[in-house]
């Protein structure tokens, strides 16, 4: 069972000067074996997924499965209502008339796919998260403006406060902060 709300006690935060530095630092973090770290930047950086060593998201397969269920559900719903439970002749068509059902099948498939994508994204990202050590940093707000950050969470196997902070410094991190959940 996946832990939906994970307890994070401490986070180390380091600031970087540019998107290029952030990308290189992420590669070094990956190569050093860190897993529970995140990069924060005001905009999308191409190649970041590979630099951080992120695996492909399983979301696509989940969406496909739920969309297929939506498709079958829409077919079943229409079959049940128009051919079994309350059959009505509509413009001389058979009770189970495939072509007339297609628009609803299409719409419900898309709807389930879209809802699964959004809900799945939120669940996989373990959101919403109302408290996190990062929120206690004053500098961190700049990530949505003009600054680049790497944060390392204490749940990482390689986490060692003194050692990790030193490592972040050697790969170019500045203004290193150790944040605690209060």
């Amino acid at each position: 069972m996946m832990e939906l709300v994970k307890k994070i006690d401490r986070v180390i935060l380091a600031e970087f000067g540019s998107s290029k530095e952030l990308l290189q630092a992420a590669e070094k973090m990956r190569d050093a074996g860190y897993k529970e770290f995140d990069c924060h930047s005001p905009f999308l950086i191409h190649g970041m997924d590979a630099a951080m060593g992120l695996k492909r998201s399983p979301l696509g397969y989940i969406v496909f499965a739920f969309a297929s269920l939506g498709l079958l559900g829409a077919l079943g719903l229409q079959y049940w209502t128009s051919a079994v439970d309350y059959p009505l002749v509509i413009s001389g068509k058979p009770f189970f008339s495939g072509p007339a059902f297609v628009p609803i099948v299409f719409a419900l498939t898309i709807l389930t796919a879209a809802i699964t994508a959004v809900v799945g994204m939120i669940v996989i990202n373990r959101l919403p998260r109302l408290r996190h050590p990062l929120f206690s940093s004053d500098r961190f707000g700049k990530f949505s403006d003009d600054s680049f950050f790497i944060s390392v969470e204490s749940s990482d196997k390689k986490y060692n406060e003194a050692h990790t902070a030193g490592f972040l410094k050697t790969i170019g991190g500045q203004n290193i902060e150790i944040l605690k959940d209060e």
Partner: peptide, 12 residues
């Protein structure tokens, strides 16, 4: 293709 077919099939 289906949009073309559906309208013609339905209007008959």
């Amino acid at each position: 293709g289906f949009s073309q077919y559906l309208l013609i099939w339905y209007a008959n």
